[in-house]
Amino acid sequence: MDIFNDFSIGLFAMQLTILILLLFLLAKFAWKPILNSLDEREEGIQNALDQAENARKEMQNLQADNEKMIKEARAERDAMMKDAREIKDNIIAEAKEEAQEQASIMIENAKATIKQEQQAAVAELKKNVAELSIGIAQSVVKKELASQDEQLKLVEGMLQDVTLN
């Protein structure tokens, strides 16, 4: 089979015409839709890649925002704890001061009460001494003792009989 021996110009021209017609029809009706669909697919892929990149950037931004919010929350928590400690210390200090003031007042009141009781005891003692003196004087007058020695013996005897509280 020799290809060049069996060559026919008419057959060749017919095949060439059909090929050109087929290429023209493909160019007119098929290539544009095929190229358009390829372009659309390429755009779709590019859009998906862009969206993925945007989503990645947004996730990074959200993570950065979350870390910032966590740091702010920790700082706020630390500030609140510091304030709470200061308030606690102030309350304790105020309670100590108030307790000291109350203790001072109670001590002053106790001193005043002791002084009043001491004065009352001294007054009672003076009263008892006065009553005792009056009683001794009455006894001395009743017996009408003639000598001073007898009077002194009587007073000493009465003093030994009387016990002071």
Rank of each mutant, 00 (worst) to 15 (best):
D50C: 00
E97I: 04
D149H: 08
D39C: 09
A73H: 07
E97M: 03
A30N: 08
L125M: 09
D65M: 10
V140M: 02
V129G: 04
A99C: 06
E101I: 09
W31I: 15
N109I: 04
L38I: 07
G10S: 11
W31A: 13
Q116P: 01
M158S: 02
N90W: 10
K96V: 13
T113A: 11
P33C: 03
A112V: 06
A52I: 08
A93V: 04
S104D: 15
S133A: 11
P33W: 05
E94L: 06
E40D: 08
A120L: 08
E67Y: 02
A30I: 12
D161C: 00
E40T: 06
A30L: 15
E150P: 01
A99V: 02
A146Q: 05
D89E: 13
L38H: 07
L26N: 03
L16H: 11
F12H: 03
E53M: 11
A112M: 14
V155I: 13
K126G: 02
D50I: 06
E156Q: 04
D161R: 07
L23N: 08
M158C: 00
G157R: 01
T17L: 09
L38T: 01
I114A: 15
F29I: 02
Q148M: 11
L26V: 05
E43M: 08
I18M: 14
D149I: 05
N66C: 00
W31D: 11
Q119L: 10
V155L: 00
T17A: 10
L152F: 01
K71A: 15
D2I: 05
I136P: 04
M14K: 13
K127G: 12
K28T: 13
S147T: 13
E117D: 12
F29D: 02
P33F: 04
A13Y: 07
M14D: 14
L25A: 08
S104C: 07
K32Q: 14
K32W: 04
E156D: 03
L145P: 00
A130R: 11
G157K: 02
V162C: 00
E72G: 02
A13L: 12
S133V: 07
I136M: 09
E124G: 00
E108N: 10
N61S: 12
Q118H: 10
Q102T: 12
M69V: 10
N90E: 14
G135W: 01
E97Q: 09
R77D: 07
A55Y: 05
A120P: 00
E97N: 05
K88G: 08
R41T: 09
D65W: 03
A52W: 13
A64Q: 09
F4N: 08
E43C: 02
D65A: 04
G135R: 03
L125H: 11
F4R: 05
L11G: 02
K127N: 12
K68C: 05
D65I: 07
M14T: 14
A52F: 06
Q118E: 11
K153Y: 03
V129L: 13
M1C: 06
I136D: 06
L25S: 06
I3P: 03
V122E: 15
I134V: 11
K96P: 02
G135M: 01
Q63I: 05
V122H: 15
L22S: 03
T113G: 06
V141T: 07
D50T: 06
E94V: 03
L26C: 05
I105H: 13
W31M: 15
S139K: 13
L19T: 12
E131N: 14
S104R: 15
